[in-house]
């Protein structure tokens, strides 16, 4: 059971722009176990979505994966041809894109759009088989069968998002990446969608990568997680351990800035400043300008960034661990 479905090792990806290379993903290493949900959290622009896009290699044209390895269930994905990748996408890894509920084609019925994806991967299925499959998927995500014949504009935001999840599950993927699936939704709808995802995950034993900027959602949804800052993972490990004993100052700052409705009202702390530009050469710890108690060592740039194990399966960036 402890087998890894996905292993990412030392992945580096940059965008080539006129003003220079933007290093969006720096030396990322993590793994996702079979049937586990893995969270990726960090502020906007930290590279969460870039990681997701690299996994399915759907990144923009100017994005280049310069080094690293991605193995899905033993198969190396880096270096595959476009044709080979097509069979990995959706069959191997499917993805619920950020804002995908607004990406439905407005003039094609929902059912037809899902059938299109299934047809591509199972060309021998009959139409009836495919429709049965869609009905099954809809039941799983809590949609009524009649939605198959509806157009996107006839559905509410929550229903469209459910249909997107059904689409992501349509080819029985080994791994689903959910990129901010509830960000544009209301709290009550968000709660319903989160429940739906949990239910489907239990039912199918799905492996899931859950991307969010909301650490509260990550706390509820995931068993293991990684915190990203400026293109790097600065802390990773079991979700409970990270919340109980955060070792990186950025993780602590995130936890201290998240309001909650339960427990006593606590004073929240803001994290001032802005993340560094990813074009510039890294100089020491990239978080040190915003760190609450940086030492001379952090600022001097003497310490290089890199994860070290602080407890079993719990990794944190060297700099913060050494500072205490």
């Amino acid at each position: 059971m402890d087998e890894n479905i996905l292993e990412v090792k030392n992945l580096n990806m940059h965008y080539e722009t006129i003003s220079g290379d933007v290093a969006a993903v720096k030396d990322i290493t993590f793994h996702v176990k079979k049937g586990e949900s893995f969270g990726l959290v960090g502020e906007s622009g930290c590279g969460k979505t870039s990681v997701a896009m690299s996994l399915v290699q759907l990144q923009a044209d100017n994005a280049k994966i310069s080094s690293g390895s991605i193995t899905l269930d033993g198969q190396e994905l880096i270096g595959l041809s476009e044709n080979e990748l097509r069979s990995v996408r959706w069959d191997g890894i499917s993805i619920v894109f950020q804002g995908a509920m607004n990406a439905w084609n407005p003039v094609i019925k929902i059912g037809e759009q899902i059938r299109e994806a299934i047809r591509e991967h199972y060309p021998n299925n009959t139409k009836l088989q495919n429709i049965e499959k869609i009905k099954e998927l809809f039941e799983m995500v809590g949609l009524s069968e009649t939605i198959i014949d509806r157009f996107p504009h006839e559905l509410s935001g929550g229903m469209k998002q459910r249909a997107v999840i059904a689409l992501a599950l349509s080819c029985n993927p080994k791994l689903v990446i959910a990129d901010e699936p509830t960000t544009a939704l209301d709290v009550v709808i968000q709660d319903q969608i989160l429940n739906e995802i949990k239910k489907v995950q239990d039912l199918l034993g799905l492996s899931l990568i859950y991307i969010s900027h909301d650490i509260a959602v990550i706390a509820e949804m995931t068993e293991r997680m990684a915190v990203m800052y400026a293109g790097r993972i600065v802390e990773s490990g079991p979700t409970k351990d990270i919340f109980a004993n955060p070792r990186h100052s950025y993780t602590r700052a995130l936890l201290e800035s998240t309001p909650s409705v339960v427990g006593d009202k606590v004073k929240l702390n803001s994290l001032d400043g802005e993340p560094p530009s990813l074009i510039d050469e890294e100089f020491g710890c990239s978080f040190s300008p915003r760190c609450s108690n940086p030492t001379e060592n952090c600022k001097s740039g003497k310490s290089e960034m890199g994860l070290i194990e602080v407890a079993e399966d719990h990794f944190a960036d060297k700099c913060c661990v050494e500072c205490g």
Binding site: V187, Q190, E220, A244
Partner: peptide, 18 residues
């Protein structure tokens, strides 16, 4: 009650009951 119980809690040990 529904609204309050819908808010995710930033604590993985907390069992939220909807």
């Amino acid at each position: 009650k529904r609204l309050i119980s819908s808010i995710p809690v930033p604590d993985p040990t907390y069992e939220r009951v909807v």
